[in-house]
Each structure stands twice: as C-alpha cells, then as structure tokens.
Simulated assay, not measured.
Amino acid sequence: MRTWLITGASRGFGALIAEKALQAGDAVIATARKPADVTARLGAHPNLLAVRLDVTREEEAHQAVAEGIKRFGRIDVLVNNAGFGVLGAVEETSAAETERLFATNVFGVLNVTRAVLPHMRQQRSGHVLNISSIGGYQAYMGWGVYGATKFAVEGISEALHQELAPLGIHATVIEPGFFRTDFLDEQSLVKTALELPDYDETVGKVRRMAHDYNHAQPGNPAKLADALLALVNSPNPPQRLPLGSDTVARIEAKNRLVEQELLAWKDVALSTDFRD
C-alpha cells in the first residue's frame, strides 16, 4: 500500500486523483485549506486523512506531513496540485496579483516539496508529481504570468529529476491541456482587475474564449487521474508527461518553431564564442 500526499484535494484533479488512489487500495493524505471540504467530496474512508494545508505557509506544510507520517508511517507519492490561474495581459497583471499567484503556484510547490523530501530521502524511494500545464511549455497571450509560474515549476521539476534520481526518488512534471474541470470558473481563475482596450483583440479574445470554453474542454479529468495511477506504477517514469491532444499538438508546434529558428539563427548563435 502506497501513501499519497495530494495538495488541493477537495475538488478538481486533486479530488479525482485521491479517489482513484483510494480505489486502488492506497492511503491518501488529502490536503486543502478546509479539510471539511475534502471529507464532503470524498467521504469517510479508513485510508483517508484530511489535513489542513495552505501551501503558502511553510509551517503548515511541515505540520501536514508530520500528521500524515504519524498516521501512515511514510509518503510514497507527492502530488503538488494546488494552484490557480490568472488571465490577463502581462502589463495588466499587477504586482499584487503576480505575487499572490507565485506564492501559491511556485513557492507553495517548494514549501511542500521541502517538507516531504527528507522522508523520501530517508526511505530512498518516492515519486514527486508536479502539476504544470501546457502553459508551462509554451506561453500564450493572456496567460503570460500564469505561464511564468508553470515555467518555474518545469525548471524546478527538471532539476529535481536529476538531483533525486541517485537517491531512488523519481520526479515528473505533468503538463495537462484544457480538461473539463472548474479551472475556468471564478473559484479557480482570476481575471486581472485592469483590462486595457489596446489588448482587446488579443487578450480580450482569450477572455471571451475562456468564457465560452468553460466546461466544454476536450480533456477528460477522470482519464487524467487514471494516467497518473499508471505513471506511478511505471518502473521507469518519464521526466515530463504531457496529457491531452491539445497539449501534444502545442508541444509539436513549438518544437518545430524552435528548430526552425535555431537553424535560421545558428550562424549568429555560434558566432559569439571566443576563437582562441
């Protein structure tokens, strides 16, 4: 029986992953700012421990981990899932909006990871799953600052993959596209307070699309949860796992663009070395 610690487990991906893990016979430390919301969503279960955790508070991360270790003795899988989105042009996103977003999406990941890793290092096993986004692989208008948080998660995850492998611990960054969750609802997506008319044809179009696309996204959240169960069962898990046809298409398109630009500017790129 594995023990999972899942942040943001009261709804969305977090709740579905917790549900699938429990069905597989695993134990779950399900965290949320309001543990009662976890119990309301998942019900009572002997292998479920609902714990309060605001990921922006490092002391709460250590407390949640301590409660989980006391109950189940170990943590085998960490899912850094808690996060939210901000929709707006880079210029429109205020310092306060940016800081709040990074506090949860980046510093929260670091807080929880630092709290869990000492236990995984001691047992010389474990798997860290960091939920990123296609926005962490390719930026897009309207999602620039949100994407920046996910680019940060990608970098952290790549480094963790290298640092933890010799210790018997895996690290994988998950890159979902648009899945039919409540991510585009007001409880998960914040629109910037400032909306400048000059961005109406770019970011404004994205705002309107987000409204129309809500609960019409192509990705099936239950299948994402199934994919993560398959991932942690793999003896050789990947460094990154893109999920969704839209994600695969965007990755392929960006890779082609990067290759084309590299070829076009390769002479300039190589010209900057010393010629000793």
Rank of each mutant, 00 (worst) to 15 (best):
A159S: 15
E195Y: 10
Y199M: 09
Q123Y: 08
G168A: 09
S234R: 07
L228E: 11
G135Y: 11
P221V: 12
A171Y: 13
T192E: 04
V232K: 02
A253Y: 14
K150V: 11
H215D: 02
V206D: 08
L196Q: 07
Y199V: 03
A148W: 10
V153D: 04
Y199Q: 09
D246A: 02
Q162I: 04
H215Q: 03
I156A: 12
V173I: 15
L189D: 05
N233H: 11
L184H: 05
V203S: 05
W143R: 02
V248D: 14
K254V: 05
L243Y: 01
N236L: 02
D198V: 15
S132H: 03
A225S: 03
S157I: 08
D226F: 01
I174Q: 02
L231R: 08
R240Q: 10
A253G: 15
P221W: 07
P237H: 00
G204F: 10
K205Q: 07
S234F: 01
G144E: 11
S125M: 12
D182S: 13
Y213V: 14
Y137F: 09
Y213L: 15
N233A: 14
S132E: 07
P166Q: 05
G144P: 01
E201C: 03
P176S: 13
T149Q: 10
L129T: 11
R250F: 02
Y199R: 10
D246I: 10
E186I: 00
T192W: 09
I251W: 05
F151R: 11
P166N: 06
V128W: 03
I131T: 09
E195D: 14
A152Y: 08
N255T: 14
E163W: 02
H170L: 06
L167P: 04
I134A: 08
M141D: 10
E175Q: 15
G204W: 06
A249D: 07
R180E: 13
V128K: 09
L224E: 04
E163I: 01
